[in-house]
C-alpha cells in the first residue's frame, strides 16, 4: 500500500500479520480492508470495499487467537496474528460454498455469468469439486419485466450488495430482503414488486454489483469467448472481484 497516502489521510500506521506475512493497517481499518489494500486475497462474496461490510457470506472467516472472525467486520489490531489460507479454513469455505450452491439453482452451463461469476470463481479458488449436499431446487419466478435488466432469484445468495448499492451509491431504495430463515429472499420495492415499476436504471451501481448471475443487464449474454472470461485462466486471488471487471468491460 501507499504509506505516504495513508499518512496524509491522518491514519495511524500499525502492523498485523496474515499467514505470517506482515501487513500495515490504518486506524479503523478491518482485516479485510487492510489485506485488500496490501494485495493479500481473503475469499469473500458479500464484501465490496465501496460499501458498508455486511458479514453474511462467512467466506472471509479467518482464525486468530483460537477464535474464528469475519475478516470483513473485525478491525485490524497491532500485532494481531491471523491465519487465513489453512486446510481447516479452506475446508470450511468449501462447505459454505456447497451450501450456497445447493440452496439455489446454479446451472453454470446455462448461465450468462459463467466465467465472470464471483461465486463460481471463489468455489474454483477453494477447490470445490461438487456440492455433495441435498439440493433445494427453489422455484422462484424470474423477473424479466424491465427492458434493460433481468433478475433470476434462483441465483441470489442474499449478499445484499444490490440493496446497499441502491441505498448508498444510487440514493434509491430499489431492493430489500424479505422473509425469514430459508424463506428469506430478495424483494423489489415497487408497487407491483416488479422490476419495471421500480426506479432501477441500467446505469445504476446496483445493477452491476451482483457477484452472481442473479441481476443481469440484458442483451449482453455470452459476449466474451470462453477462455477470455475473467476467471478462465487465472484464479480470483489474482484477477480480483467481479465488480471491478464489470466496470472495466
Amino acid at each position: 500500500m501507499n504509506l505516504k497516502a495513508a499518512t496524509r489521510l491522518g491514519g495511524r500506521i500499525g502492523h498485523f500479520s496474515i499467514d505470517g506475512v506482515r501487513l500495515p493497517f490504518r486506524e479503523g481499518q478491518t482485516i479485510m480492508a487492510a489485506a485488500m489494500e496490501a494485495g493479500v486475497y481473503i475469499p469473500h462474496l458479500c464484501y465490496n470495499p465501496e460499501f458498508t461490510p455486511h458479514g453474511s457470506c462467512r467466506l472471509c472467516v479467518v482464525r486468530s487467537n483460537g477464535r474464528h472472525l469475519a475478516a470483513c467486520t473485525t478491525p485490524a489490531a497491532e500485532g494481531l496474528e491471523v491465519e487465513s489460507y489453512t486446510d481447516e479454513l479452506q475446508e470450511q469455505r468449501r462447505e459454505l460454498l456447497q451450501m450456497l450452491f445447493v440452496e439455489g439453482n446454479h446451472v453454470c452451463p446455462a448461465c450468462e455469468k459463467s466465467g465472470a461469476c464471483q461465486l463460481q470463481a471463489v468455489a474454483y479458488y477453494c477447490g470445490m469439486l461438487a456440492p455433495e449436499l441435498t439440493y433445494f431446487y427453489p422455484q422462484r419466478t424470474v423477473d424479466a419485466s424491465h427492458p434493460d435488466i433481468a433478475i433470476d432469484y434462483n441465483r441470489c445468495i442474499l449478499c445484499e450488495l444490490c440493496v446497499r448499492a441502491s441505498r448508498e451509491a444510487d440514493g434509491k431504495n430499489v431492493f430489500s430482503i424479505a422473509g425469514r430463515g430459508i424463506h428469506a429472499h430478495l424483494q423489489i420495492n415497487s408497487s407491483t414488486g416488479k422490476l419495471k415499476d421500480s426506479d432501477l436504471e441500467v446505469t445504476d451501481k446496483a445493477a452491476h454489483v451482483c457477484p452472481t448471475g442473479a441481476i443481469l443487464p440484458r442483451n449482453l449474454g455470452y459476449n466474451i469467448p470462453m477462455g477470455k472470461r475473467p476467471y478462465d485462466q487465472k484464479p480470483i486471488s489474482l484477477v480480483g472481484d467481479v465488480a471491478d471487471h464489470e466496470e472495466s468491460s
Binding site: F101, N105, A110
Partner: peptide, 14 residues
C-alpha cells in the same frame, strides 16, 4: 454437471 447437480435437465424441476 448433470450427475453432480442434475445439470441443464434439472431446469425442468422448476
Amino acid at each position: 454437471a448433470c450427475a453432480i447437480n442434475g445439470g441443464i435437465p434439472a431446469m425442468r424441476n422448476s
